[in-house]
């Protein structure tokens, strides 16, 4: 049975209660990308200031559940100051983390990614895969970031 504590880790609740990098950057110099989750009504705007291939600043506005809010907050902290290439690699690893692996769901087998230890705080979101309907909450921010980087 999936346990709620797997979903609502303390670190996730912390990011939900005190989200990082809230606010706006002025576009057009910053890239502004909107993300929607039409089923839940979650809305997210990601502002990116990319200079010379580096994410110099990132800000977020919008609203959503604890998982989508925490995921976007953690995402912003993870990619701020990183190169676009590094950010893309992080997106890929996060997506992999969110892939449902039957074997890890029933408690057998390994976590889906081998290098989970390198993911820092983001690893706390791993429990989301045990709640498949919530995966889209966690991935909204990352899909939106990915779209924004396409414009960088």
């Amino acid at each position: 049975m999936a346990n709620l504590d797997d979903l609502y880790r303390e670190i996730i609740l912390d990011h939900y209660r005190t989200p990082r990098n809230r606010g706006e950057l002025t576009s057009p110099s910053a890239i502004r990308t909107e993300g929607f989750n039409p089923l839940c009504g979650d809305e997210l705007v990601v502002y990116l200031d990319v200079q010379d291939g580096v994410i110099v600043d990132i800000k977020l506005t919008g609203h959503g559940c604890s998982i989508s809010q925490a995921s976007s907050s953690m995402m912003s902290a993870a990619v701020k100051g990183k190169t676009v290439a590094e950010a893309r690699a992080t997106i890929d690893r996060f997506k992999q983390l969110m892939t449902v692996h039957e074997s890890s769901l029933d408690g057998q087998g390994e976590a889906p990614v081998a290098d989970i230890r390198t993911m820092g705080e983001l690893a706390a979101l791993q429990g989301v895969v045990k709640f498949p309907v919530r995966i889209k909450c966690a991935t909204l921010a990352w899909n939106t970031l990915s779209q924004g980087l396409d414009e960088a």
């Binding site: 709620l4 559940c65 709640f131 909450c137």
Partner: peptide, 13 residues
């Protein structure tokens, strides 16, 4: 302070 999705998730428990 609790999003409806989180409310429903806790209630499901």
């Amino acid at each position: 302070g609790v999003h409806p999705h989180d409310v429903a998730q806790v209630l499901d428990q």
